[in-house]
Design a binder for these strands. Structure first.
Lengths: 200, 200
DNA sequence: TTGCAAATATGCAGTCGCTGCAATAATATT
DNA sequence: AATATTATTGCAGCGACTGCATATTTGCAA
């Protein structure tokens, strides 16, 4: 991405670590696709990646972190928050959220993130986590909106906006998941927000 | 396939089973409160309930089913669906949902359900499940609304209504959880919907 | 009352995700 | 080259959960 003031040459250690991390993530994801998430044992992933089972846990705290890796590894919430803080004060909060999402999304959308998304919905416990993520996103959005429109009496409205916006986002992801031919997520997001706005 | 649809005198077997089920649920909940959910081992619950660890799993498929027991054990979604189907056709869908919830809630609110609710939010994995439940509720509500207002062009609006209604419900539960002095959940629901409606 | 089938309880061994600990090997720093 | 850091690994162990085989209890009928 960007080079720090001191473009410190990456040591062998760091490089190997990064490579191993990615290797695990790639092999893991492929195995999840081929055999299913629950049927894929951690030991098997580790073995296929050429490391011991114990070492796996030095790279990922849990099995599902392999999937989180492809979803941006938790950086998404932070990115959305940042985008909302940075974005110009739009007259309508809903638009602000939409634009923030549209701005951030491309950075978190890869070939594999689409594959990973399907797996999230393949297993009950994963589904639950994913949905919990949306709630987190909602809280993040709400908090960001409150910063930008600090008048306390508008909070209930902002709360609603956050709910609606994240809801639209959820519907967009759902729509893409159900499409055979997948278009970029941003398109679904645009459509989803358009439908929502038509209702207001 | 059965003979009498009326209260067939409950056999010893059924009675004992019901008693054991409840005993496990009560002791389990109390232990969760006292020692924390994760710190409470299944073996400990089973021992305290006077059964073997293996037998526990004949009553509850998972540890968290102990908590689900106090939340109505999955019957809530069904009850809401039924209430929405039965309820008079209100002009406003949002009101219909609110009234449906208000009608059903008392049947699922007990002393222990409030306690259980606090535990749901004490642990990450439980929180995720709880939030997944709200999404399920949203889908249930949406489906029920679609039955009642079948015009296809109104669906986006109904989707929104479902989102808003469940959102208000979520906020109500949250509000109660944060209140020291707990009032009946229905009051929080009324308030929450009132705030929402004031925004529309 | 007895006999038998169905339901229930239990022990045991095992899987899987995950953790702590301690020893060892690889890399970085001086 | 010596030393400090960090990575890798094996091992032992925990806790939720399952399958299987066995014993016990209960329901029902001859």
């Amino acid at each position: 991405m960007e080079n720090a003031p001191i473009a410190k040459a990456e040591g062998l250690r760091e490089r190997k670590r990064r490579e191993t991390l990615r290797r695990i993530a790639e092999i893991g994801l492929r195995m999840f696709v081929e055999r299913g998430y629950e049927a894929t044992t951690l030991e098997a992933v580790a073995a296929a990646a050429g490391i011991s089972a114990r070492t796996f846990f030095h790279y990922f705290k849990t099995k599902d972190e392999i999937l989180q890796f492809w979803q941006g590894g938790g950086g998404f919430l932070e990115a959305v928050r940042a985008a909302l803080r940075r974005g110009s004060t739009r007259p309508r909060a809903l638009r602000a959220v939409r634009d923030g999402l549209l701005e951030v999304l491309p950075r978190f959308t890869t070939e594999n993130s689409v594959v990973a998304d399907r797996i999230w919905y393949s297993t009950e416990s994963l589904r639950a986590q994913k949905q919990a993520f949306f709630i987190e996103l909602e809280q993040t959005v709400f908090a960001a909106l409150c910063e930008r429109w600090p008048r306390k009496d508008r909070r209930p409205g902002l709360r609603m906006t956050a709910m609606l916006a994240v809801g639209a986002f959820r519907l967009a992801i759902e729509a893409r998941r159900h499409d055979r031919r997948t278009r970029p997520l941003t398109e679904y997001v645009r459509e989803s927000f358009a439908v929502l706005e038509a209702q207001l």
